[in-house]
Amino acid sequence: MDQYTTHTGVGVPLKRSDIDTDQIIPAVYLKRISRSGFEDGLFANWRKDPEFILNSEVYKNGTVLVAGPDFGTGSSREHAVWALQDYGFKVVISSRFGDIFRGNSGKAGLLAAQVDEKVVQKLWDYLDHTPGGQITVDLETQTVTAGDSLKESFEIDPHTRTRLLNGLDDISLTLSHDAEIVSYEASRPAWKPTTL
């Protein structure tokens, strides 16, 4: 996985709450067996509306999504993270994330930055005044900055932060504890079910 330190890009205000992963990518777009090409499905139903924010020229190259609370609830589909990434997003900022979405983001290298609800509102205000304005998200210092005066901190769990900063592969990390897994396995009760 690539190392992640800081990112600066066009902020996209998505002023909705409860954006579940069925909205981020409807199920019909999940049938691909590859790991790429999910950008077509991103917000597919909403993008049919010409007024939808991603259809605006100003936000065409947006990379920092600023969304309402409870972003990424619902289905566990990691495709939601891939669709955002394939479309070009590097960061999602919200005041609350669905648990599984947050986990998936951390694994796939999309930064899910959790901020206070007031900070989301400030960022939206900033973007309303400065359409196409840039937002910088610094993982090292855990800060979001925009314009001349806006500087706020964000939350991310320390383990995910360390992994992203160092570009560590989660599976390799677990495999480095193989001896502990083996010793755990030796102590498992014999009556636990098996499938084969």
Binding site: N104, I171, L175
Partner: peptide
Amino acid sequence: GTSEVEHVLAT
């Protein structure tokens, strides 16, 4: 998620 499916398969 799918990354975790891979994780559990492997470990």
